[in-house]
Amino acid sequence: MQSTDTEFLIPTSVSEALRNIAKEDAIFLGGGTSTALLYKTRMIEPARVVWLGNVGELKGMFASPTEVKIGSMVTMAEIAADREIARLLPGVSSAAGVIGNARVRAMATLGGALAHADPRQDLPPALIAVDAKVSVRGGSSSREINLSDFYEGFLETVLAPDELITEVTIPIIPNRHSSYLRYTPTSEGDYPTVGAGASLTFNGDGKSISTAKLALCGVGAVPIVSSEANLVLAGTTGDDSVLRRAADMVREAVDPQDDERGSADYKRDMAVVFAYRALKACLVS
């Protein structure tokens, strides 16, 4: 209708997809939810679109005792509905289950949700909190990237234009509890003002914390990772005052902007509140 010159390719394997992408202005397409919006408002005009919907290799979801692997073409709805993921990774499960609305969840894919790189997105902090790694394949090489190192800026990732996210691997660590909480004060159907993903891993005694992870969305140009939380919490038993102190550390780490979802000052305060609540949720879960 608007332009009939965009080529639309439907590869059936990763290697074919990688061959297809080797063209100026070619893009991958997952569920297409963000791409369609950009395209219809003429913000992007790709020469070629490589739709991954028929690449079966990208649609797997496997849970073993040591790791969970989710293919990049798995949808939010599939992640949210999976019982094993809900049990092993409750934060990831709940983040996938609150994104947008039921239609967005049915269409949006893991690869798209990560590559889109809107800093308000829910999934990244939930996944960063459980040490997710992104497997990427390019024309000649492949690499694994910690999701915490994946984001470079607003709508920007470390991916090269011809790199394909194939899957995300999340290590399963005994005695780790994780959570994700989002704050949507205006409407539940909104992007979060702030979202917080957290995990606490306990030592063999089940009481003292060995590692703490905390990541936030909505409060910077990229997902914010608070490494200070670990410094405060590791070795403690996560008493309330320690949790609060750890949460308070995010105040310095975040870099929020004023917008309709709140002033920067408010978002900073809410980041602290939700960091605390997300950490606390790891104690009871």
Binding site: T186, S187, E188, G189, D190, Y191, E260
Partner: peptide, 15 residues
């Protein structure tokens, strides 16, 4: 500045 239903929020059934 609220130029789409993404920003111009109307109550949904869960709200």
């Amino acid at each position: 500045w609220a130029l789409s239903m993404g920003e111009f929020k109307l109550p949904n059934v869960a709200d």
